[in-house]
């Protein structure tokens, strides 16, 4: 199956990379983490989540790992994912790109105040 392109990096894929930056997570864990880090603005459905995970796996930006020992047995049996160094590098690059965009926006004074 051909790989989906990640240039530009889709928003869902970037959020998944960010969610995995802190710890290994299974699908539901990723979904909750994404909802949390986006202020509940993004709820990844199964189709979006797993098609994005599949793409990230194919590009070796994340990898599949065993569940942590600390989790219950049934949760450990679920597929967990970890950010690879390539994934971390891509996420960092995307974050810097967004930061640059943010600085530009601020310089153009499109914000109403200095609180951003």
């Amino acid at each position: 199956m051909p790989k989906r392109t990640l240039d530009p990096l889709p928003s869902a894929a970037f959020q998944i990379l960010l969610a995995l930056a802190q710890e290994d997570l299974h699908g539901y864990g990723i979904m909750r983490q994404v909802a949390e880090q986006t202020g509940n603005r993004m709820h990844l459905g199964p189709g979006t989540l797993y098609s994005s995970i599949q793409t990230l796996l194919e590009h070796k930006l994340i990898e599949e790992v065993d569940g942590p020992e600390s989790e219950p047995a049934d949760a450990r049996r679920r597929r967990h994912y970890r950010l690879t160094s390539a994934g971390r590098k891509l996420a960092r690059g995307e974050a810097e790109h967004l930061a640059e965009t943010l600085r530009t926006a601020r310089a153009r004074k499109i914000f109403r105040g200095d609180y951003v």
Binding site: H26, G27, Y28, M31, P46, G47, Y50, Q54, R78
Partner: peptide, 24 residues
């Protein structure tokens, strides 16, 4: 409903997707 997805995708993610649904 998940049967609407392509066979290859279903084979790879069917169980995970159902887990996710059940969790939600």
């Amino acid at each position: 409903l998940f049967r609407l997805f392509p066979a290859r995708f279903r084979a790879a993610w069917h169980d995970e997707a159902l887990h996710l649904f059940c969790d939600r």
